[in-house]
Amino acid sequence: MTATDPTAPAPRAPRSTVVAELRGATRIYQMGPTKVRALDGIDIQFLEGSYTAIMGASGSGKSTMLNILGCLDRPTDGQYILAGRDVSDLDDDNLSGERNRRLGFVFQAYNLIPHLTVLENVEVPMEYGGVSPGEARVRATRLAERMGLGDRLDHRPTELSGGQQQRVAIARALANDPVVLLADEPTGNLDSKTGLEILSLLDELHAQGRTLIIVTHDPKVAARADRTIHMLDGKVQRIEERAS
C-alpha cells in the first residue's frame, strides 16, 4: 500500500480503538396503536479496522441497526457513540454532518444519481462537505481510477454494468475518508462472479485498515468478515468470531 492510495484510510488511532459503539440501543416504532421494538437494548462495539457482518432474517432488526449506525435514524433509547462522540441526540443538521464526514454507504441497488456522471456522483459527498470543486475533481478522479473506472469517468450510471455501478458507489462512499464504511447487501443485485469482485474489493479496503460493517443474508459473504453478528427479534442472538 502506497501512502497516496486514495482508498486507504488516513492514519487515526491505533487498532483496538473503538470507533463505533451501541449502548443499550433501542428503537421503538409506533405502528398504529402497537409499539414495535425493532431494536431491543443492543450493546456492541466496533473496533478500528474491524470487518463485521450482520445477519438475520427480515424483521430481525438488522436494517434498523444499520440505519442507526449510519446516522440515518436515532435510537429511541440508549446511546450511539461514533468516533468518540455521542450522536444519539444530535439534531438533523449535525446528523447530516456525521453522515457526510464519518460514514460511507454502499447500497444493494447502488443508488447512484442517474443524471450525474461517474465523477459527479463521486463528488456529491465532497460538495456537501465543503471540499472545493477543484480538489473534489482531483480526489474523485483518483478514487474512480483506483476502482478501475478510469475510462468511464464521464459516463452516466445507465451506461455502466452493475459491477461498475457498485464500484462507483464504493468510490463515492470513500470520498470523505469515512471512519466506518457501511454496506447493505452490496452483492445482492450482482451475479456471483461480479459479486466476488466487489467482495475482494471490500477485502482490500479491510486490509488497508478501513472499518467495515456489512449487512447480508448470504453466509458466504458473511464468511469474509472477522466477526458475524446474528440478529433475532431486535436482539443479538449470537456473535461468531473468526481469526483473521
Partner: peptide
Amino acid sequence: TREIGIRRALGARRSN
C-alpha cells in the same frame, strides 16, 4: 424522492 434520499444519506442537510 430516491435522489433526495441518496443525497441525504451522503450528508445533504435539509437546507441543501
